[in-house]
């Protein structure tokens, strides 16, 4: 009983939602709307459950004077203060019918002067940790890590003013850089005497360098010639190889979600029910 009924509920609700996708007519569309609202309401109850659980844990810690109970008291003070000003809509226009974010409301003040600085600063701390983690992870240890590093650097350059300034003051610098990179690769290939790849890389490198020099001549003569800029390269990366990889990841995630959803609806996956000891 304790496990069968929830499994049945999951099956019925899941099948109704599946039917609604293929038969968007009464009664399935109405059921879908009702169940969507039920989901939102239950999500709100879940927030209450989370809050209640937090209070239960910290109040127990305070009552037992466990180590660190002072910090639990701070947590509870913040929790109950925010709850009180939010639920009773303290401050702002008279009555409780006004919006939570109304002018002069204490809830909005608590958001502006407490919640917002705390969340923004906590997430901004990640900038430092990402920097130190990337220093360890991105030392170009192998080719794959080098590709990741170069892509990240190009994106960082191209989406800031530095990238634009770089190619505006030094037109063709990207082509020269690319040509130099290919020349270096060709030199490396020459040492291992892989003639096919050497010829290919050398030809592309030579083409890039000759094209850039030709572009300089045209531009010096007052003509018009397109030379690659960092923002253009970033746009191309974002729209072509980045999107291709992202699509592959999304397709993979989708297949995973479909299989997990089917497992849940058919009752194969039961881990969300917890243990039998509950």
């Amino acid at each position: 009983m304790r496990r069968q009924i929830p499994l049945l509920i999951t099956f019925v609700v899941g099948v109704i939602m599946l039917f609604e996708a293929f038969i968007p007519h009464p009664p399935f569309d109405q059921l879908n709307e009702s169940l969507s609202i039920t989901f939102d309401v239950l999500a709100a109850f879940a927030f209450m459950l989370g809050g209640g659980n937090l209070a239960k844990i910290h109040l127990t810690k305070i009552s037992r004077s466990e180590p660190g109970w002072g910090y639990s008291a701070v947590t509870m003070a913040g929790f109950f203060a925010m709850l009180a000003v939010g639920l009773f809509k303290v401050g702002g226009p008279s009555g409780v019918k006004h919006a939570l974010e109304a002018e002069g409301s204490w809830f909005q003040a608590a958001y502006d002067y407490c919640f917002l600085p705390l969340s923004a600063t906590t997430f901004s701390l990640l900038a430092f940790f990402v920097a130190s983690a990337s220093y360890r992870a991105f030392r170009a240890k192998n080719r794959e890590a080098t590709v990741l590093l170069i892509a990240a650097l190009i994106i960082l350059l191209g989406r800031t003013l530095v990238g634009t300034a770089l190619t505006e003051t030094l037109p063709g610098s990207l082509e020269l850089l690319f040509g130099a990179l290919l020349a270096y690769l060709a030199w490396e290939q020459y040492r291992s005497k892989r003639w096919v790849s050497l010829s290919l890389i050398g030809a592309v490198g030579a083409f890039v360098l000759i094209r850039t020099l030709y572009g300089y001549l045209i531009l010096a003569g007052g003509g018009d010639f397109y030379l690659l800029t960092v923002p253009d390269l970033v746009n191309w990366i974002m729209v072509v190889p980045q999107l291709a990889g992202q699509r592959a990841i999304m397709i993979g995630i989708c297949l995973g979600i479909i299989s997990m959803s089917l497992r849940l609806i058919l009752g194969v996956e039961r881990s969300y029910l917890g243990s039998d000891n509950d």
């Binding site: 927030f47 929790f79 709850l83 906590t122």
Partner: peptide
């Protein structure tokens, strides 16, 4: 840091709880 972190936990739990109550529970239920 621990003071700010503890406050953040309490305030954010209450913030989302209040939002859920006023945006979902009261109008929809």
């Amino acid at each position: 840091y621990r003071f700010a972190e503890s406050l953040f936990i309490g305030v954010s739990a209450a913030y989302w709880m209040v939002q859920g109550i006023w945006q979902q529970l009261i109008p929809n239920m």
